Amino acid sequence: MNLTEHYNQLYTKSSGEILNGNYKLDTQINNISDSRFGITLLIRPSEIIKANIQLFLDELKAIEPNQYYYPDSDIHITVMSIISCYEGFTLDKINIRKYVDVIQQSLVHLDKIKIEFRGITASPSAIMIQGFPTDESLNNFRNKLREDFKNSALEQSIDSRYTIATAHTTVMRFQEKLENPEKLIQIAEKFRNYGFGEFKVKNMELVYNDWYQRESNTIHLADFYIAN
Rank of each mutant, 00 (worst) to 15 (best):
L10Y: 08
D26A: 00
I48A: 15
I96G: 09
R44A: 07
Q67Y: 14
T40K: 15
E87P: 08
H76F: 05
Y11C: 11
I43C: 04
G38Y: 11
I82T: 05
N31D: 15
S33C: 07
V100N: 05
S14Y: 09
S46Q: 00
L60M: 07
E87R: 13
L41A: 07
L41Q: 01
E87S: 15
L42D: 11
S73L: 05
I29H: 02
D58L: 10
T40P: 08
L91Q: 08
L91F: 13
I77E: 09
S14D: 07
I53Q: 01
K13V: 12
F37A: 04
Y11G: 09
N22L: 15
I48N: 05
E17I: 04
I49Q: 07
C85W: 11
S84Q: 11
N66F: 00
L55V: 14
N66Y: 03
N66T: 10
I77Y: 05
I63N: 09
C85D: 01
I48P: 04
F56P: 03
F37I: 12
Q28H: 13
Q54Y: 03
I83T: 04
D72H: 14
L10F: 11
I77K: 09
I43A: 05
K93R: 15
N31L: 04
G16M: 00
Y99C: 00
Q28D: 15
S14I: 13
E47F: 13
I82A: 02
H76K: 05
D34P: 00
S35L: 12
N22T: 09
N52D: 00
G16T: 14
Y70A: 04
S73K: 15
P65A: 01
P71D: 10
N31K: 05
I75T: 03
L19W: 02
Q28S: 12
E17P: 00
Y86V: 02
N20F: 08
C85K: 10
D58I: 06
T27Y: 08
I96W: 06
I63G: 08
S81M: 10
L25N: 03
